[in-house]
C-alpha cells in the first residue's frame, strides 16, 4: 500500500518538495513577513524566506534554565515586597498564590511500600552491596549478586535512588 520506501532518491526529492510547496502560504501571516511584503514586494519576501533564519538565542532556553529564571523572578518580587514592608510597616506584603512551584504535589504521608527493583513484586529484602531490593533468593542469586556496578545504578535510577555525582 505504502510506496514511500520504494521511491528512488529523485522521486523522493520531488515528492517531499511537492508537499513543502503545498504548505507555502498565499499571503504571509507573520508580522515580519508582512512588513517585508509591504516594503519590497513579493520578490523581497521570496528572497527573505530563502535566507537562513537568524538564530534568536533569547528564545532558546532549556527547561531547566526557564525554571531557574522563574525562581529568580519570584524571589526578586518577594525581596521587593520585604523591602517595601521594612520601609513602611503598614504595607501588606503580597504572598505567592499560585506558582509552578507551590502547585507541585507535596510528599506522600502514607508509608512507602517496597517493591522488587527487578520484577516489581513485593521487595522485602535489600542487597547489602548495592541497595537493590529484591523479591526472593532466586532473583538475588541470578540477577542481583552477579550484577555489574553500572547496572545496579540503572535499576536504582528507576525509583530515583541512584547516586548522582554533582
Amino acid at each position: 500500500m505504502n510506496n514511500n520506501n520504494t521511491r528512488t532518491n529523485d522521486e523522493r526529492s520531488e515528492f517531499l518538495s511537492g508537499i513543502a510547496a503545498m504548505n507555502v502560504l498565499e499571503q504571509p501571516m507573520r508580522r515580519a513577513q508582512i512588513d517585508i511584503l509591504k516594503e519590497g514586494g513579493p520578490a523581497a519576501l521570496a528572497a527573505a524566506l530563502q535566507r537562513p533564519k537568524k538564530k534568536n538565542n533569547r528564545r532558546h532556553k532549556g527547561a531547566r534554565q526557564i525554571l531557574s529564571d522563574e525562581t529568580k523572578r519570584i524571589n526578586a518580587i518577594l525581596e521587593q515586597e520585604q523591602q517595601k514592608h521594612e520601609e513602611d510597616p503598614a504595607y501588606v506584603r503580597r504572598v505567592p498564590q499560585v506558582t509552578t512551584f507551590n502547585v507541585s504535589a507535596p510528599p506522600s504521608v502514607r508509608p512507602v511500600k517496597h517493591y522488587c527493583d527487578i520484577t516489581g513484586l513485593s521487595g522485602p529484602y535489600t542487597s547489602p552491596t548495592n541497595n537493590i531490593r529484591y523479591h526472593n533468593s532466586e532473583i538475588f542469586q541470578f540477577i542481583v549478586k552477579p550484577m555489574t556496578p553500572g547496572v545496579d545504578q540503572e535499576y536504582l535510577k528507576l525509583r530515583g535512588a541512584n547516586f548522582v555525582l554533582k
Binding site: 504535589a105 510528599p107 506522600s108 504521608v109 517493591y115 528507576l158 525509583r159 530515583g160
Partner: peptide, 13 residues
C-alpha cells in the same frame, strides 16, 4: 509515585 522515584503524593492521596 515513589515507584517511579517521585517524592510526591499519589492521585488518590
Amino acid at each position: 509515585p515513589s515507584i517511579g522515584g517521585l517524592d510526591q503524593a499519589g492521585v488518590s492521596e
